[in-house]
Design a protein around this nucleic acid. Structure first.
Length: 1040
RNA sequence: GGGCCUAUAGCUCAGCCUGGUUAGAGCGCUUCCCUGAUAAGGAAGAGGUCGAUGGUUCAAGUCCAUCUAGGCUCACCA
């Protein structure tokens, strides 16, 4: 048995497509699940992507992490079912369809017909899910899309209804009239987590407006004077109902330079009216209560009432940080305003229609969009003398997260879940949750819970889970928990019916309480509720799959990007806690966002979106995956571009691949049978490579247990580099000879690294597994078990020794570079000074001699005449003992004769007098550096040195020539395209006597290295190789 | 405005938790070396006020405070 042939060059994307085919033909994903079926369950929940647009590279990010941990856990023997899911409902889908159909508002939808419109939404979802499935497959994300849950499935809706009924029965699902953010374009209220996504910085008109006082003590005292108010929403002035001041704040009557009188907060007088204004009278805000004034626009009619319309009210929320300290009240458009005006019994007037335009009967701005009316109103304020000042004001204002229309705060009836009632439970559940990174737990997410407000659940829309509440004419409410229940209540309904609008709207039944007819309320629910219900709704629980659900709650692992803090992470925890009194996840990985190469957010708007499939077909999915997992910190925002991903390919994937190709090449050339691999008769370097592989398996395991792919990836990359650029580099000759222990070692090491890399880069590792291991092991790397180890297999001493060896070699290279004597020229000896080098095993010392190309290594330390000693203070050990005295003592140590004190310290502790005090220091307190004296070429780093003896003998020169010649011929063989085992014939000539001599003396050595079977010194007509320095011309041909 | 994150070489980022002598890597640039696996590898050079200021400490890139800039996020206080 042999390896399959592994080409040196590889087209990664093409290879990946072949692997995809292999996986599907051999059904590897399913086999990996079957194989682990009896293992302990590790529960993963897939957060459903919203199927309202094409998948982007940011979707790849989260999906890579959702893939890597289940793959890893599966290799560790866990059973990790992976059910895909799609978020189907919601405004985003509706908007996409509206755009397609060219609609501009809800009227168009109603005209078109809800049934047809929802059909279009359903089609749109299916279309986008197809695109997601393609991307999911291409990137190697193993998730079961055949049995995906769809939030629009009837059984899913049943589950959602069931849960809503549970909440309703607890009295936590209620209708309330509240001022809440409302999108006039979409015609629906927004929940707080939707609101959070839509703040935009805008410049609004801010106006200071006169409210002339019409009665009260101040009027009697001063005659003409005005309240001065400030607002950034001039359009609300039409609806002005009252003015509010803080009763405990000082106010003044102030006179402007022009002699006009205003009431204003004392603290803001100078800022608003200027230094030249003067205070006439000071009093507490509470004395203003009841003062009546004249509103700026008297277009809206107020009902007859005894309540104090258009007077001053007292409110705690008024501050003196902005404006004038007098707030204009329009209760229909502000939560605090509404509460205040209600408490004074004031009526609520609202001249703004649900589409955001002013009622037609309003003069000047009837039919105008509320925000657009600002400019005209400011102009009118100027004309009627109300306007005191007009300033642009920049602030961030909420906009609809989908259509970017400015939101309006608008009083309207809406359904709420009283999450504030379970706030303490939510906080307790969060306490039990492991967040990665941890800062989210008490930071972003913790803050969110601390400031919890009731969940505005209802939407006045069409494509969503209908709110399953029926109301009768006497306003009794019935919450229905499934289609089955509905069918029991109404003969119009059936268990099989489509639970969407408009079909459910047509169902009515007799109110169980009063027998009057009950009809469904018109709202659908927030689609975030759908996705948050997935732990049970994906199974259709409790109608179906009760056992499945119960085993798989809560999840061990969920993962999404940071924007889900207020989204899915919240709704999952909130619904889980509401229904089951336990959060639905234990560990949550929260990723940073992907940015473009310039650090900007990717968006269609900016045109900087990387199309994921194109990206993967350019560089390979493995490269994209590795980037996501390892480059930078996953929980911070990261920049992604072609350059960064191409580097992954070069540095990591191809280095790994080349090592594999190397192993295959020589194993096949030597007809080596991998089933005979055995880790016996190993060299020191072999043992090192094996022990490091074991260490790798342990370290990667630990890192992945901590959800730290970055650390794990760095371990892998380091090991791949060690294996390729040290183990293989140093062992080449043994591979040429097809040495069993070397081939066995690399076979083993490649197996380990392939396995631990498999969750990261499933394609290339699968390909390697197929080529090198599948014939002697299980059929796929993804069906193999994670390597096991015992700690004693991990040899720290050997690791340290190899590290020292490599450091000394580096010194040798540096010394070579400094000397100008190239490495191919052998030198007689190198002198080494480095702690512990003498104890290096002979095998490792041979590595040094070979790399540095010297015949012997000698110790520099013993040869005093060649070496100077320098010492420095070891601050760490001194500082611990002498603290403040440290610098003084350090100075005293350095001032001593270095040679003398080192000699003494090598015998024992030394007493030192510093500033009259005698202290004792040991070897540990100094750092000794030995530096060769002049006349030697030396390199020295961190106290370790290597010096080269540059004396050349004719024999050494001849050896150098031989090595030059060998290299020239090898290069010629390669460029001529000879196979590594081809034998050749050589003809050469030179008129240089030194070259002549070297050729003759080293003939045997050269011939064996270059596999020459014939060797002739004769004139060369057409040299394949010629070298001017050596005055050498060679021709070679393949021997028969 | 509140909270969080980030700021280290031209670029991308380690190092900071647990303070210690001369702050690292990769990419890019220059010169050289090594090479019959390599699209690689190595050495040297150039490139740093470790965002700023103050503090703690014998000692600060590292700990603390304040500030600045950028990002994310929350918040329409009128």
């Amino acid at each position: 048995m042999t390896y399959r042939e592994v080409p040196a060059k590889i087209d990664l994307p093409e290879m990946e497509h072949e692997i995809l085919k292999l996986w599907s033909q051999q059904d590897i994903f399913k086999k990996s699940l079957d194989k682990s079926a009896d293992g302990p369950l590790w529960v993963f929940y897939e957060g459903p992507p919203t199927a309202n647009g094409m998948p982007g590279t940011h979707h790849v990010e989260a999906r890579v992490f959702k893939d890597v941990f289940p793959r890893y856990r599966t290799m560790k023997g866990f059973n990790v079912p992976r059910k895909a899911g799609w978020d189907c409902h919601g405004l985003p889908v509706e908007l996409a369809v509206e755009k397609e159909l060219g609609f501009t508002g809800k009227q168009d939808i109603e005209k078109y017909g809800i049934a047809q419109f929802n059909d279009k939404c359903r089609e749109s979802v299916v279309r986008h899910v197809d695109a997601f499935e393609e991307m999911t497959s291409r990137m190697g994300y193993w998730v079961d899309t055949n049995q995906a849950y769809w939030t629009m499935d009837s059984s899913y809706v049943d589950s959602v209804w069931w849960s809503l009924k549970k909440i309703f029965d607890k009295g936590l699902l209620v209708q309330d009239h509240r001022v809440s953010p409302y999108c006039p374009r979409c015609g629906t209220g927004l929940s707080d987590h939707e609101l959070a996504q839509g703040y935009e910085d805008v410049v609004d008109a801010s106006v200071y407006v006169r409210f002339p006082i019409t009665s009260g003590a101040l009027k009697d005292e001063f005659g003409a004077l005005s309240l001065l108010i400030w607002t950034t929403t001039p359009w609300t002035l039409i609806s002005n109902t009252a003015a509010a001041v803080n009763g405990t704040v000082n106010y003044v009557v102030a006179k402007t330079e022009d002699g006009e009188l205003f009431v204003i907060a004392e603290a803001l007088r100078e800022k608003v009216l200027g230094e030249d204004s003067s205070v006439i009278k000071t009093f507490l805000g509470s004395t203003l209560e009841g003062t009546s004034y004249q509103r700026p626009f008297d277009w809206v009619e107020f009902p007859e009432t005894d309540s104090p319309i258009h007077t001053v009210l007292l409110a705690d929320f008024v501050t003196t940080e902005d404006g004038t300290g007098i707030v204009h009240e329009a209760p229909a458009f502000g939560a605090e305003d509404l509460a205040l005006c209600k408490s004074y019994g004031l009526p609520v007037v609202n001249p703004v229609l649900p589409d955001g335009t002013f009622n037609q009967d309003i003069p000047e701005v009837g039919g105008v969009f509320f925000k657009t009316a600002d400019a005209r109103l400011v102009q009118l304020l100027g004309e009627n003398g109300s306007l005191f000042r007009h300033l642009p004001y920049e602030h961030s204002y909420p906009h609809c997260w989908r259509c970017h229309t400015a939101l309006i705060y608008y009083a309207q009836p809406s359904w709420y879940i009283r999450t504030t009632a379970i706030k303490d439970q939510l906080i307790a559940q969060n306490e039990k949750t492991n967040w990665y990174p941890e800062t989210i737990k008490s930071g972003r997410f913790g803050d969110w819970l601390d400031n919890n407000v009731d969940w505005a659940l209802s939407r006045n829309r069409y494509w969503g889970t209908p709110l399953p509440i029926w109301r009768c004419e006497d306003a009794h409410l019935t919450c229905v928990g499934s289609r089955r229940e509905l069918a029991q209540l109404s003969s119009d309904a059936s268990v099989e019916m489509d639970p969407h609008r408009p079909f459910v709207d047509d169902i009515s039944f007799k109110c169980p309480e009063c027998e009057l007819q009950a009809n469904r309320v018109p709202e659908v629910i927030d689609c975030w509720y759908d996705s948050g219900a997935m732990p049970f709704a994906q199974w259709g629980y409790p109608e179906k799959n009760a056992d499945l659900f119960e085993n798989r709650y809560p999840a061990d692992f969920i993962c999404e990007a940071i924007d889900q803090t207020r989204g899915w992470f919240y709704t999952l925890m909130a619904i889980g806690t509401l229904i089951f009194e336990e959060s639905s996840y234990k560990n949550v990985l929260c990723l940073g966002h992907i940015l473009d190469e310039d650090g900007r957010k990717m968006s269609k708007h900016l045109g900087n979106v990387l199309e994921p499939i194109a990206l993967m077909d350019d560089h390979g999915a493995d490269a994209v995956r590795w980037f996501m997992l390892v480059s930078g910190s996953p929980w911070q925002a990261r920049r992604v571009g072609h350059g960064t991903i191409a580097e992954v390919v070069r540095k990591t994937l191809l280095t790994y691949w080349n090592t594999v190709a190397f192993q295959s090449l020589y194993a096949r050339a030597g007809s080596w049978d991998p089933t005979t691999a055995s880790l016996t008769n190993l060299t020191d370097l072999d043992r090192w490579a094996v022990a490091q592989a074991t260490r790798l398996a342990r370290d990667v395991d630990k890192a992945l247990e901590d959800f730290d792919t970055q650390r794990a990836g760095r371990f892998i990359a380091e090991y791949v580099d060690d294996l390729s650029n040290w183990y293989v580099r140093r062992s080449r000759r043994r591979f040429w000879d097809a040495e069993h222990s070397a081939l066995s070692t690399l076979h083993h090491c490649l197996k380990v690294v392939t396995q631990v890399m498999a969750p990261f880069t499933p394609f290339i590792t699968e390909r390697v597994w197929q080529d090198l291991f599948a014939t002697s092991e299980v059929e796929s790397v993804h069906l193999s078990y994670w390597p096991t180890w015992s700690d004693e297999e991990i040899d720290d001493t050997l690791r340290d020794q190899v590290e020292l060896t490599r450091r000394i070699v580096e010194l040798g290279r540096a010394a070579r570079a400094a000397s100008g004597v190239k490495t191919r020229q052998p030198l007689q000896r190198a002198l080494v000074a480095a702690a512990g080098w003498g104890e290096l095993p002979e095998g490792l010392q041979a590595q040094i001699r070979d790399e540095v190309n010297v015949i012997t290594l000698e110790s520099l330390a013993g040869t005093d005449e060649l070496v100077d000693v320098a010492i420095k203070a070891n601050f760490k050990s001194l500082g611990a003992r002498f603290a403040k005295e440290t610098p003084m003592i350090a100075k005293a140590i350095v001032a001593k004769d270095a040679r003398e004190i080192v000699d003494q310290l090598r015998i024992g502790p030394v007493e030192l007098e510093v500033e009259g005090t005698v202290i004792t220091i040991t070897l540990e307190d100094v750092v000794i550096t030995e530096v060769p004296r002049a006349g030697w070429t030396v390199a020295s780093v961190g106290g370790e040195s290597l010096a080269l003896d540059l004396a050349l003998t004719p024999e050494l020169i001849a050896q150098g020539v031989a090595r030059d010649v060998t290299r020239l011929i090898q290069d010629a063989r390669k460029t001529s395209g000879y196979d590594i085992s081809d034998r050749i014939s050589i003809v050469w000539e030179t008129s240089n006597p030194d070259t002549q001599r070297a050729m003759n003396e080293h003939r045997e050595q050269i011939c064996s290295e270059v596999l020459a079977t014939k060797w002739e010194n004769a004139s060369v007509e057409n040299p394949v190789v010629s070298d001017e320095d050596l005055d050498l011309r060679i021709s070679l041909i393949r021997s028969s």
